[in-house]
């Protein structure tokens, strides 16, 4: 018997969306930025909400720069997908991200501390099945507090 993802013609759209989002999060867990980007459309946009205007841009530019810096500063960074659901035509991933800071990051000097913070990733998938927009939110003051 085959899983739904092996039968793309039979899949409800929401399922292929979920698979794309989970593949993205797994690539993040593997710290493979290129693989993360391979799941996104070339013109895809991103917003790291707590970072305001500095956190908005193209996935292949702003996203790539932030994730590369993050992985460099937190070499043990890891995540747990708590749940993945479709809502209002988008995929909502509730994720816990954790890691230990080894280098300065985004104005946060390293103190060798660790963080564990819940994040919400909202994925919008385009008609070709790639991530077209990604919004990420977390409690930034709590994140900073853990590392200070």
């Amino acid at each position: 018997m085959e899983a739904l993802k092996d039968n793309p013609q039979e899949q409800p759209l929401s399922i292929s969306w979920k698979n794309r989002s989970v593949d993205f999060m797994k690539a993040y867990q593997d710290q493979n930025v290129q693989k993360m980007l391979d799941n996104c459309s070339k013109k895809g946009t991103i917003s790291f909400l707590p970072l305001g205007e500095d956190g908005k841009g193209k996935i292949h530019e702003t996203g790539k720069a932030i994730w590369t810096a993050l992985i460099d500063s937190f070499p043990t960074i890891d995540n747990t997908i708590n749940s993945v659901v479709t809502e209002n035509g988008k995929v909502k991933c509730d994720v816990t991200i954790r890691g230990k800071q080894e280098k300065d990051f985004g104005g946060l000097p390293t103190r060798g501390k660790s963080f564990e913070e819940d994040h919400i990733f909202i994925f919008k998938i385009d008609s070709d099945g790639f991530i077209d927009d990604l919004t990420i939110n977390w409690n930034h003051s709590n994140f900073v507090k853990q590392l200070s």
Binding site: M1, E2, N19, T86
Partner: peptide
Amino acid sequence: FYKLSMYELTDE
């Protein structure tokens, strides 16, 4: 029983 990725069925 079905080898179905269960996150596909979450909330569905």
